[in-house]
């Protein structure tokens, strides 16, 4: 009872103080809010365009190191934020494996042993098949819209296109490994062309460059993604999108364990 009362008082006090602060600093607080709203809207538009309502893609990921490289190819299906499926098509060693995400849950189907393995969340932050991408980067558990606070910090030209430079700071409760993310999004058509990932001590960890902008499957998208670890000469992971379809609906019912065993 007592605690409730204290909570109520604290709550009231905060509201009143906030109200006063807003009155005092209203002149500049309001434009910042508007600008914050703009930054969020730009990121939302970019994310919607990039992700689409649903998308089917084929891609090849190549891990490049100074003395060697390894490739893995896959087909992917996505519906909004919450549903995705990945089918490995090459190399032969991994072919046939399937990963599925439904909301917060993820499964891995291993056909050679007829085994459905439920993947715990701790596996999400692990590097995907030894690349510079994490499971999270590919399955996209965290959201650039939902999990961050956004602000425009400038404008720069990339690949001859004028871009907003937007800073993303993760929300306290968000399950994000980064301390800060900076996005470059084209002013004209909401495409992200560059992403910088910083750790909690504000050191640059990875840079992602997006290029080869073309029409594919009904949208103009960057078809080449490069993830470059900072301070590591000659190392990167490249994803080439070889086909995409944003037109054909991928139904929610597609993302089932039954279908994991059937797709190819």
């Amino acid at each position: 009872m007592k605690k409730r009362k204290i909570d109520f008082l604290l709550d009231n006090l905060l509201k009143r103080t906030a109200g006063k602060l807003l009155l005092c600093f209203g002149f500049w607080v309001v434009p910042v809010l508007v600008q914050g709203q703009n930054a969020k809207e730009i990121v939302m538009r970019m994310d919607k365009k990039w992700r689409g309502d649903y998308v089917t893609q084929e891609m090849t990921m190549t891990i490049i190191r100074p003395t060697w490289q390894r490739s893995i190819s896959m087909k992917t299906w996505g519906r909004g934020m919450d549903y995705s499926m990945v089918y490995i098509t090459a190399p032969a060693k991994e072919k046939g494996q399937v990963f599925m995400k439904r909301n917060k849950e993820m499964w891995n189907w291993v056909p050679s042993i007829d085994r459905m393995i439920k993947l715990p969340p701790s596996m999400m932050m692990q590097s995907w098949m030894g690349s510079d991408f994490t499971n999270d980067d590919l399955i996209r558990e965290s959201s650039v819209v939902r999990d961050y606070v956004h602000s425009i910090i400038g404008a720069e030209e990339i690949l001859g296109r004028m871009c907003y430079k937007i800073k993303l700071i993760p929300k306290q409760e968000a399950a994000v490994v980064w301390g800060k993310v900076i996005l470059w999004i084209t002013k004209e058509d909401d495409l992200q062309l560059k992403i910088e990932f910083y750790d909690e001590d504000e050191y640059l960890v990875n840079t992602q460059l997006l290029s080869d902008i073309r029409e594919m499957g009904g949208r103009v998208i960057p078809c080449k993604l490069e993830m470059i670890p900072a301070d590591e000469e000659g190392k990167k992971t490249v994803i080439d999108i070889t086909s995409a379809d944003y037109r054909t609906e991928v139904k929610e019912s597609f993302f089932s364990q039954q279908n994991m065993k059937r797709i190819r």
Partner: peptide, 21 residues
Amino acid sequence: YEERPGTDAVRLQYFTGFTSA
């Protein structure tokens, strides 16, 4: 033996939902 042996059987599955059977 990564694949493990098989079983001689008939298996009937009915999927009652997206993640249930």
